[in-house]
């Protein structure tokens, strides 16, 4: 085993190299073990994106500790290393300013949590469902199924509309009925329909009222609160049901119309 004392560079021997490599391998194995352990026991408690970030930070810390333990074997001067490291950090920092900004924005997104995976959101002109929040970017899948990657800095500094941040939301319908029909009856038919629908919330209660005497129709307004998670499906299916119900009740939904009165031309013209 004399070869271990053979000098490779300066005062660094194969022994030092071996210890360093073992240090790093142990650090990588420990980091991997931590990753597996955290995934097993925290995956049902923490969002995947956040868990990934925590795991990566811990892995980097563990591997840096491994490096730090291995470095004295090379008899490095820590002060020199810090100086070199600090300079490198500034150089890399300047070169990757945008990345740093995105990274910090990503951290703030995780802390403030204006959006999270699974939320339906609008960021600038992009509307869709948040798929993942990475360290540098946020992935949104639009309703057309398009993959959109938005840098975290853009997400953080933009106006965000989160359609499901609140557990309940309201939507409305405008229903026009003919002037010949009984508006009160149409309102009762719609109220009965809303009462029977499971996801039209009992509280806040829905509201159906005569809103306007329009040019071609008497306009009813229907205001409905429902769970945010199902609002779109409720919105789409209820309008069809309202149309069918009020038509079954004999109410007419009129087309736009204009009454034209024709007068006979005066004699002699």
């Amino acid at each position: 085993m004399e070869w271990l004392d053979t000098v490779v560079y300066g005062e660094v021997t194969y022994y030092h190299l071996l210890i360093f490599v073992i240090d790093v391998i142990v650090a990588v194995v420990v980091a991997k073990a931590i990753s597996v352990y955290l995934k097993k026991y925290l995956s049902d408690r923490i969002e995947k994106a956040e868990l990934d970030i925590i795991i990566r930070i811990l892995q980097v810390v563990v591997i840096l500790i491994g490096f730090y333990i291995g470095l004295p074997r090379f008899e490095f001067n820590l002060a020199d290393l810090i100086l070199v490291g600090g300079t490198l950090t500034i150089v890399i920092g300047l070169a990757t300013q945008k990345m740093g900004s995105n990274f910090v924005s990503g951290l703030f997104l995780l802390i403030e949590r204006p959006i999270k995976p699974g939320d339906t959101v609008q960021v600038e002109s992009v509307t869709g469902v948040v798929q993942k929040i990475h360290i540098l970017s946020t992935i949104i899948k639009t309703f057309e199924g398009i993959y959109v990657r938005i840098p975290n800095e853009t997400v953080f500094t933009s106006e965000i509309v989160n359609y499901v941040a609140n557990v309940a939301r309201r939507f409305e319908y405008v229903v026009g009925i003919s002037y010949q029909d009984d508006a009160g009856r149409a309102i009762r038919v719609i109220q009965d329909l809303l009462e029977a629908h499971p996801f039209v919330l009992k509280h806040p209660s829905p509201s159906v009222f005569l809103d306007e005497l329009g040019d071609s129709s008497v306009v009813l307004k229907v205001l409905i609160w429902c769970p945010s998670r199902v609002w779109w499906s409720v919105r789409t299916e209820l309008l069809q049901e309202i149309k069918t119900a009020i038509e079954d009740a004999g109410t007419v939904i009129p087309f736009p119309q204009r009454v034209i009165t024709l007068q006979e031309a005066p004699p002699g013209r």
């Binding site: 557990v167 939301r169 499971p198 919330l201 009992k202 509280h203 609160w225």
Partner: peptide, 10 residues
């Protein structure tokens, strides 16, 4: 079935 809201929407 029927659902409701306990508290405020937010």
């Amino acid at each position: 079935q029927k659902y409701s809201l306990y508290g405020t929407p937010d």
